[in-house]
Lab assay of single mutants.
Amino acid sequence: MGFKLLSKLLVYLTASIMAIASPLAFSVDSSGEYPTVSEIPVGEVRLYQIADGVWSHIATQSFDGAVYPSNGLIVRDGDELLLIDTAWGAKNTAALLAEIEKQIGLPVTRAVSTHFHDDRVGGVDVLRAAGVATYASPSTRRLAEVEGNEIPTHSLEGLSSSGDAVRFGPVELFYPGAAHSTDNLIVYVPSASVLYGGCAIYELSRTSAGNVADADLAEWPTSIERIQQHYPEAQFVIPGHGLPGGLDLLKHTTNVVKAHTNRSVVE
């Protein structure tokens, strides 16, 4: 069995187990497998329904001669939608809004960016022009300005110390501490036991640490421990890039980060 097929099978099995364990909360999309990078042309966006009122959005972007996937989250909030992270750029984010209108038909009224990198804030200006209120932590807003990236308009308070959590509509926002970046936030959907790890969490097929220019490698494993301790009931975990899975993604990420750190020390 090929690795790609095995990865998709694991996603399907995880979703099936969740649907059985929580039949009222989960209505997993039966329309197909989780979209992969090879299936999404740059400039297009796919939506994948995880649970009743919960979707991931998947886009792709060219970077350094390669094409990478990027995940975000959409959560229903009454007759409105909360968006977590842009679709990595203005063109993708405009396509995301169009796809949401086509498939869901509810307005996106608020959006949260989970850290300051372009795959999370690139497209904020498109959201703002569409009347979406954009939010991020003060740290993310400051770092985005320093980096020359787009800056969300509103500040999220109460997320300055490791372990801080605040309720934001249908989700809980959690600051686990520094990891992929010093400002990275985690998003949890309690009604569906869905954990969105953003770039602080890796997919299972990833074996290298990737972009760690703004990471705190020493603190990252401790931050992941905080996530595990705060959300032990999480059933569906979405990484910032690639295929979702279960809580095993947290341990896998820790292993990859520690291996990278150990290699760096040896070198």
Rank of each mutant, 00 (worst) to 15 (best):
G2V: 08
G2Q: 15
G2A: 09
G2T: 07
K4P: 06
L6N: 15
L6T: 08
S7M: 09
S7T: 09
K8G: 09
L9V: 14
L9A: 14
L13G: 07
M18C: 13
I20Q: 12
L24W: 07
A25L: 12
S27A: 15
D29R: 11
S31D: 10
S31W: 10
G32P: 09
P35A: 08
T36Q: 12
V37D: 15
S38T: 10
E39W: 09
I40L: 15
P41M: 13
L47R: 03
Y48I: 15
Y48A: 14
Q49G: 11
Q49F: 10
Q49Y: 13
I50H: 08
I58H: 08
I58Y: 06
A59P: 04
A59W: 03
D64W: 09
L73K: 01
I74G: 02
V75H: 03
G78P: 04
E80G: 10
E80C: 06
L81Q: 00
L83F: 03
I84E: 00
I84T: 03
D85E: 04
A87G: 04
W88C: 02
W88K: 00
W88P: 00
W88S: 00
T93G: 00
A94E: 14
E99M: 14
I100R: 01
I104C: 00
G105I: 02
G105L: 07
G105R: 11
L106P: 06
P107K: 15
R110Y: 12
V112C: 06
S113V: 06
S113K: 02
T114D: 02
H115Q: 03
F116W: 15
H117S: 00
D118L: 06
D119P: 01
R120W: 02
G122R: 07
G123E: 04
G123R: 04
L127E: 00
A130E: 11
V132L: 03
Y135K: 00
S137E: 01
S137N: 07
P138D: 09
P138L: 09
S139Q: 14
R142F: 13
R142G: 10
L143H: 06
A144I: 06
E145C: 08
V146E: 14
V146I: 14
G148F: 05
T153V: 14
H154A: 06
L156Y: 00
G158D: 08
L159M: 06
L159S: 02
S160N: 13
A165V: 13
V166K: 09
R167G: 10
F168Q: 02
V171S: 01
L173Q: 03
F174C: 03
F174V: 02
Y175R: 00
T182W: 10
D183N: 08
N184L: 01
L185W: 02
P190W: 06
P190G: 07
S193N: 12
Y196S: 01
G197D: 05
A200C: 05
I201T: 07
R206S: 15
T207H: 14
V212Q: 10
V212Y: 06
D214N: 09
D214S: 08
D216I: 07
L217R: 04
E219I: 09
E219D: 07
S223H: 04
R226C: 01
R226M: 08
I227Q: 03
I227F: 05
I227T: 09
H230E: 11
A234H: 03
A234K: 03
Q235S: 11
Q235V: 11
V237A: 03
P239K: 01
P239N: 01
L243W: 08
G246W: 03
G246H: 08
D248G: 12
L250H: 05
K251T: 13
T253M: 02
T254I: 13
N255G: 14
N255C: 06
V257Y: 03
V257S: 01
K258F: 10
A259Y: 09
A259T: 10
H260R: 11
T261W: 11
S264R: 13
S264N: 14
S264H: 13
S264I: 12
V265N: 11
V266C: 05
E267A: 04
